[in-house]
Each structure stands twice: as structure tokens, then as C-alpha cells.
């Protein structure tokens, strides 16, 4: 078992205590935001729970290994990068999903690329980005991020 959940829960409770002592009203608002955020993200969390169950229960390891595993080569790189760019998932749930890909036979390179494109590139939010920042910045940022994701994945794969 990992220590991360223990650590973050102690940290959060510590923050709660300090915040409550300093300002009750603000603490109330913070908890309200926390609950609201949780409710907003809940369907996505449950969706991931179902999808991971489907993925691990139905898709044989051999298939995931073939498309995202160590032997998948260039195809694996593009499958992972595209999957990450198209899917629109908050990064909190991206990590558990990525970990289950890893467990199911995907390579470290593929998983690192998937996380990076998933978080940095958004096909879904691209129209909004263009509207706010202009076509040039938005397209440059998304395009270069795609290349960086592949670079990051390949380097991580080479080292780990």
C-alpha cells in the first residue's frame, strides 16, 4: 500500500484545522467548493470506474500490449498520443486510468505520452482556446505539446 493517500489526507485535515481557526466563513466556503467540485467530477469518476472494469475485464492483455506495449513501436506512440489528445478527462482521474493501462500491459513510454497529451492537448477545448488566445498561439501550443509529449515519453521509456 502506498503512503500518498495517508499523507494527503493528513495534509488536508491540517489545512482544514488551520483554515477553521483563522476564518470560519471562508472555511465553510472552501468546503462548499470542495463538495461542488466533487459532485461535478463524480460522474466522470464513476465513468472511469466502469471503463477500467471493462478494459481490464474484457480486453485481453495481449491486445493492449500489441497497441501500447514495448513492441508496439511507432504505432504505439501514435495510438497513445491520439488517445490522450482526443479524450477529455480531468487529470485527477487520468493517473488511475494510466496506471491501469500500465497494469494491462502498456509500456511506460505509451503511458507517459498518454498522460502528457491528455492533460496538455484538448481537442474539445480548442475552440475556446482559439477564441481567447488567438489561432496562432492555440495551434502552436497544441502542436508543439504533441511533439513534446512524444519526446517526454520516449525519454522516460529509455530511462525507466
Amino acid at each position: 500500500m502506498n503512503l500518498a493517500p495517508v499523507f494527503i489526507n493528513i495534509f488536508a485535515i491540517g489545512c482544514l484545522f488551520v483554515s477553521f481557526v483563522k476564518d470560519k466563513q471562508k472555511t465553510k466556503r472552501a468546503i462548499k467548493i470542495a463538495v461542488k467540485t466533487f459532485i461535478r467530477i463524480l460522474p466522470t469518476i464513476l465513468l472511469i470506474v466502469v471503463l477500467v472494469g471493462l478494459l481490464l475485464g474484457f480486453v485481453p492483455h495481449a491486445v493492449i500490449s500489441k497497441f501500447m506495449g514495448n513492441q508496439s513501436g511507432i504505432v504505439g506512440i501514435f495510438v497513445s498520443a491520439l488517445l490522450g489528445a482526443i479524450l477529455y478527462i480531468p487529470s485527477i482521474v487520468a493517473f488511475p486510468l494510466a496506471a491501469s493501462f500500465l497494469k494491462a500491459g502498456a509500456s511506460i513510454t505509451a503511458v507517459a505520452i498518454f498522460i502528457t497529451t491528455l492533460t496538455m492537448i484538448g481537442f474539445v477545448t480548442l475552440p475556446l482556446e482559439i477564441k481567447e488566445l488567438g489561432k496562432k498561439i492555440a495551434l502552436l501550443r497544441n502542436g508543439i505539446s504533441l511533439l513534446l509529449a512524444i519526446l517526454i515519453g520516449v525519454i522516460i521509456g529509455a530511462i525507466l
Binding site: 494527503i8 466556503r29 467548493i33 491501469s100
Partner: peptide
């Protein structure tokens, strides 16, 4: 399927409420 789903659900539920709280504190 049920085993995989339950496992990932348990893993997420021990960490997500704390993450949400931290997001709330930062916002405030």
C-alpha cells in the same frame, strides 16, 4: 470486471475527498 472496478474505485475514494478539500482551500 467487478473486481477491477471495485479496486480502482477504492483506490480513488481514499484520495479524492482530500484533493477536493485542497482545491476548495486554494479557491478561498
Amino acid at each position: 470486471v467487478i473486481k477491477s472496478s471495485r479496486q480502482i474505485f477504492m483506490e480513488m475514494i481514499v484520495i479524492l475527498p482530500a484533493v477536493m478539500l485542497l482545491i476548495g482551500f486554494f479557491a478561498v
